[in-house]
Amino acid sequence: MREINVDIITNVVEKLCIDSNYYLPHDVKEALQDAVAKEESPLGKDILLDILKNQEIARSKHVPICQDTGLAVIFLELGQEVRLVGGDLNEAINEGVRRGYKNGYLRKSCVEVPFSSRKNTGDNTPAIIHTTIVKGDKVKIIMAPKGGGSENMSALAMLKPSDGVEGIKKFVRDTVDKAGSNPCPPIIVGIGIGGTIEKTTLIAKRALLRTIGEHNPNPEVSKLEKELLEEINNLGIGPQGFGGRMTALAVHVETFPAHIASMPVAVNIQCHAARHREAVI
């Protein structure tokens, strides 16, 4: 067994919180540059250029890309040959978030009792932690801050198996169309199909972390991704919803086997500030 002190995890999470919010991943930057070339609306082109300028300012001056530095969504892949020592794992992660959001001058956007007090927890904890146990003796941590504007426009449907691929496409198109300008297009659309209610939303979120330009290895799913991207970009929403061609930079679909009676579909929308960063210990 390899021993890892949870203090190391705290330190790594702190740095990931800060770096993910300051530095946009390169694949997203490149997708935005491609979008400038493809955009037909002159205003849309201007907006995309300002978005690129913004991430450059954030990168060079080490400040948050967006003021909505999100809830801290953390995917933890824990090697089964690792033994964690020195304290409580979840508390170590939350301590990392606490320090990252304080020391990185990030906005604290988490409130208690959502239907009543809505009092700010003051340190952006608790993090949303998804842990899976995997082979090996490493710990992989992915930090994906998620803003409220795009999360609010996400949706889930328990479709019937007979709804078929057309039913899925209609639900996705309707969700993006209804979202319109709100989730800060150009967006990335993460779609989960199958599993149970929680599984489908989780794979939809995980789909958002895939590198732009990579497609699902299953050719049928990859075909669906391409068709959906085209259909979404025909909606005309465009950058910031001002009208244009580039409503989405990418559509990522993940599937999971489902119950014989079910076809759950989750659409998780991600704004253009598609922030995520990972580290392996």
Partner: peptide, 13 residues
């Protein structure tokens, strides 16, 4: 007026 959503660093300047 609409400002660019997600352009927080640019607007702060």
């Amino acid at each position: 007026f609409a400002a660019i959503g997600g352009a927080g660093a640019l607007l702060a300047e």
